[in-house]
Amino acid sequence: MSAESFAESSATTPSSDAPLLVVNNLKTYFKTDRGLVRAVDGVSFTLERGRTLGVVGESGSGKTVLARSIMGLLPKRDVERSGSVKFEGVELVGADNSLMAQYWGDQMAMVFQDPMTSLNPVMRVGKQITEGLRQHLDISKDHANQTALALLSSVGIPEPERRLRQYPHEMSGGMRQRVMIAIAIACGPKLLFADEPTTALDVTVQAQILDLLQTQQRDRYMAMILVTHDLGVVAGRTDEIAVMYAGKIVEKAPTKVLFSNLRHPYTEALLSSIPKISDPSHTRLKTIGGRPPNLINPPTGCKFSPRCAYATDKCRTEEPPLSAPDSDGHQFSCWFPVELSAKQTSGVR
């Protein structure tokens, strides 16, 4: 879509009636030497204001690319992005970077995976916070500094005055991730992406960061998309969960429904790979057999079929569509869904 049609559509529909985010058949392909990588291959969902969505999948499932693609944070070259992303009714696919820059940081923001590399090593932390503030909000330097100070205390950083003047390398990983969160929420975005926000952190601080994200999300009435490989992370913290496999959503349901009534064998496999406290110690961890899908030459039929214990010939030839939501809002794409409470399912939280 060209810049003009973007301007046109933005002139017509920015309304508060529209859902916050409507993603429709979003595709993101990367051109590489070895072929076209279909990282996101037709994803659709809707996210209402103040709601949270967990996107779960293995590495290589396309979940991180999905988040970046929605936000438009993709490399300029060798990327094909199609479909539709409507933010408050405004189409974002095809918008150029200078227009996106008005959304980035202001309307939507992202907390990245690795706080060790995501902060500018040669810029003071305070500057990195106020920079975005002054970019989007027309405020004085002093005002921005005051805001940064307040932000740092609200994300739970002690001695914020001192921390503002520090450089990232003078802080711990958890501290830096708090700074990243402060940067992300600085301008009061309506949508926050958290891309594996705890993967790079020590186990002891993971829960703290997740709790912080949750309270900030509630306090500020932000919508949040929490991307993770760990079903346990999203379990109690999101309204809905979407499970991704090979660039597609294979199952999507409200969190409670999903955990009590999962239907897709892949979700089942994901869940059973989480160690449980009830397991005796030294229990061998269950892993999902086989390799993550090849996104260049994906298998025919159901993409999960080569690794699926229940796969039949039909699975290997015909791809199951994502079912229409049932009364619980539960969707899945499987010819032979896992039966209700057939296997162990609950037990997490």
Binding site: M71, L73, S98, A101, Q102, Y103, W104, G105, D106, A109, M110, F112, S118, L119, N120, E131, G132, Q135, H136, M180, I183, A184
Partner: peptide, 9 residues
């Protein structure tokens, strides 16, 4: 990317 995501030109 972080800077870009902040909307810095």
């Amino acid at each position: 990317t972080t800077a870009k995501a902040k909307g810095i030109p």
